[in-house]
């Protein structure tokens, strides 16, 4: 179960991008999802994110995210439907509650809630993409000059995780073989048994932490200012991707300033029919963001492209 979300090197084009390029892509997805409120724009973004996820071979991982976030989406729809009183198309008069008063359910509130659900899904999917295409080491190394200690703490913790998991399993086995039955006893007894495992783990892990610290010090950690080891190369592919993302960001700002990316929900739903220019803008935004996914696809079937970029 744990394997699913962890970065795996698959030799994909998307994984070969410079971390700055891939992070810009993720950040663009994230920020645009937060900025736009027009259903077309949000759904369009979702489409592009899913396209990228598909290119990264991560739709299975995404399903996991979807399941986890589904209840939150439902909750958002529900709260919006109940609490929001700005809508005018009343579908149901709703219950009468103390403190809140009458809670009418309106068409507008439900639509708003649903769109917000899509917004959440967009952000979550963007993070899913992040997990799939950015190697954590490469991500953290971007920050290691400005925040060397914090980055080290996080890297170390991530590295320790699988190690501790294995230790935990060994401790549990050792306890079982000393006669501890984890499936028996009252709740209190069972908790105490698990407490013993946990304490053993904590003791061992903390003891080891001192040895790790020693090894770090022996390798000159904290001996003065630190430099950063870069192993990323900036290739034409990164420039192309960044150009695409940059273009779509620019167009987004333009359409937001022109009020095209936003949508009126209250008191009455606005017209969904967009102007010609707003549709063109949307198309440019989406196309710009799809550049990495399209290149990934192109490189897969057309080696010549891969060699050149």
């Amino acid at each position: 179960m744990l394997q699913k979300f962890i970065y795996q090197e698959k030799g994909l084009f998307l994984q070969s991008l410079h971390p700055v390029a891939s992070l810009t892509l993720i950040a663009a997805f994230f920020l645009l999802s937060l900025s736009f409120s027009h259903p077309y724009y949000l759904l369009g973004l979702l489409l592009v994110i899913l396209l990228s996820l598909w290119a990264a071979g991560g739709l299975a991982a995404w399903e996991g995210y979807l399941k986890a976030v589904l209840w939150l989406i439902l909750l958002i729809v529900l709260i919006n439907a109940l609490v929001n009183r700005s809508g005018s198309t009343i579908l149901w008069n709703g219950p009468e509650l103390p403190l809140f008063g009458r809670l009418p359910v309106t068409m507008e509130a439900i639509s708003y809630g649903a769109t917000m659900g899509v917004r959440l899904l967009n952000m979550v999917s963007a993070f899913c993409l992040f997990n799939l295409i950015v190697h954590p080491d490469r991500f953290f190394s971007l920050f290691s000059t400005v925040a060397r200690k914090s980055v080290l703490v996080v890297t170390l913790a991530t590295r320790l995780f699988p190690l501790l998991l294995a230790t935990l399993e060994r401790i549990r086995e050792a306890q079982q073989l000393r006669g501890v039955d984890f499936s028996q006893g009252t709740l209190r007894e069972r908790v105490m048994k698990n407490a013993a495992i946990f304490n053993t783990l904590l003791l061992s892990a903390l003891e080891d932490s001192l040895q790790m610290a020693e090894a770090m010090q022996a390798r000159a950690f904290g001996s003065g200012s630190r430099s950063r080891y870069r192993r990323d190369i900036f290739r034409p592919r990164d420039a192309i991707c960044l150009a695409g993302i940059g273009l779509s960001l620019l167009v987004s700002v333009y359409s937001l300033a022109r009020g095209m990316g936003t949508y009126t929900y209250f008191p009455e739903l606005g017209s969904l029919q967009g102007s010609k220019i707003s549709l063109i803008a949307l198309a440019v935004v989406l196309l710009g963001l799809s550049v990495p996914a399209l290149l990934n696809w192109g490189c897969k079937y057309w080696p010549y492209l891969k060699w050149k970029i």
């Binding site: 200690k149 080290l152 703490v153 996080v154 170390l156 913790a157 320790l160 892990a205 903390l206 080891d208 932490s209 001192l210 790790m212 610290a213 770090m216």
Partner: peptide, 8 residues
């Protein structure tokens, strides 16, 4: 640093 990482 390593104690923080371990506890985390």
């Amino acid at each position: 640093i390593s104690v923080i990482a371990v506890l985390g």
